[in-house]
Computed example of a mutant assay.
Amino acid sequence: MSVAKKEYKRVTVKSLVDMKQTGEKISMLTAYDFTMAKIVDEAGVDVILVGDSASNVMAGHETTLPITLDQMIYHASSVIRAIDRALVVVDLPFGSYQSDPREALRSAIRIMKESGAHAVKLEGGKEIKESVKRILNAGIPVMGHLGLTPQSIYKFGTYTVRAKEEEEAEKLKEDAIFLEKTGCFAIVLEKIPAKLAKEVAESVSIPVIGIGAGNGVDGQVLVLHDLLGMTHQFNPRFLRRYMNLYEDMTQAISQYVEDVKSVDFPSEEEQY
């Protein structure tokens, strides 16, 4: 049964908790620049994630590891200038929070001060507890991220589904409860069994947003460029492509090249 959508002038961390309580699903998409963020915000998406996936999507790296804190602040600042409604969450990049809680706090403060973002997201559970606590104690909202954590890809060695075995599934459930008790306002679950994700969502009072985690969670997130079909080599089961912009854009640009070379463009009407 669908739930009536409430109109929020501005989406806040409290708005997301309210959505979970009323059964309204949370929509979340990535954005990395002003133009795309403007479109996403005006389309009514609740949360914009300035993801470290910019390392892949915008810079062409194989993993999310190379992107720097300065680059994340640049992308976040571009997004913030575009939005009127959405809550903007920014990934803390690899190396900016894992080993030193003081460095984690400095990184989070820089993102909040220099970009104007509304919250940060960290990958991991109890192993990063001191970093999470330091950031929360400074009054900065934190979103957690469990399951497949791309910043640990070389540890996993693969992007396959996580927490299929009982031991890892139990740890994930414990980490989710820990993140809630510590004060995180939401959790992303990536690429885990749908049954487990539903159990986690029902065990915590904070919103759980899935990517490849089934429909038993409180919301969904996708990478914008994947949803629009701008990427085409990446075809996981959880991805629904709503457009095929790769093909459409390629055809449009090819037509432009042909029109320029044939002197069809610009026409008389397109000159001064």
Rank of each mutant, 00 (worst) to 15 (best):
L105D: 08
K181D: 14
E269T: 10
E174F: 03
A213L: 09
Q71R: 12
I26V: 11
P207V: 03
I192N: 00
E247S: 14
D175L: 03
V142L: 02
P141I: 06
L222Y: 14
T12R: 09
I109N: 01
E180A: 02
Y256A: 14
G147H: 02
G147T: 13
V132A: 03
L222A: 12
F185K: 00
K164Q: 12
P150D: 07
T64G: 07
S267Y: 05
Q21W: 01
V50Q: 04
L227S: 14
D18G: 06
E180N: 07
T22K: 14
S115A: 11
V208Q: 06
R81M: 09
L69V: 06
I109L: 15
Q220K: 13
I253H: 01
M249D: 14
T35C: 15
N56A: 07
P207G: 07
L172Y: 13
L49S: 03
I111L: 13
D41Y: 12
P93M: 11
G116Q: 07
L228D: 00
S131P: 01
I192A: 02
V47K: 09
I135K: 03
S115D: 06
E103S: 09
L87T: 06
I83V: 15
D52P: 08
L189W: 09
S27K: 07
L146P: 04
I26Q: 08
S267M: 11
R81W: 08
G219Y: 08
R85W: 08
E270T: 04
P101N: 12
I67V: 15
P101I: 13
K164D: 05
G210P: 10
R102L: 10
Y242I: 01
M230K: 07
G144K: 02
V257I: 15
M112A: 13
D226E: 11
S55T: 04
H232Q: 13
V142M: 01
V17E: 11
E199V: 05
M58P: 00
D218P: 11
L146S: 01
I211M: 15
R81H: 14
K173E: 14
A138I: 09
K9I: 15
A108S: 10
T64D: 08
D84W: 05
S77K: 12
F34Q: 06
P150Q: 10
G214E: 04
E174V: 09
S53F: 12
K25D: 05
A31E: 05
E167C: 02
K173N: 01
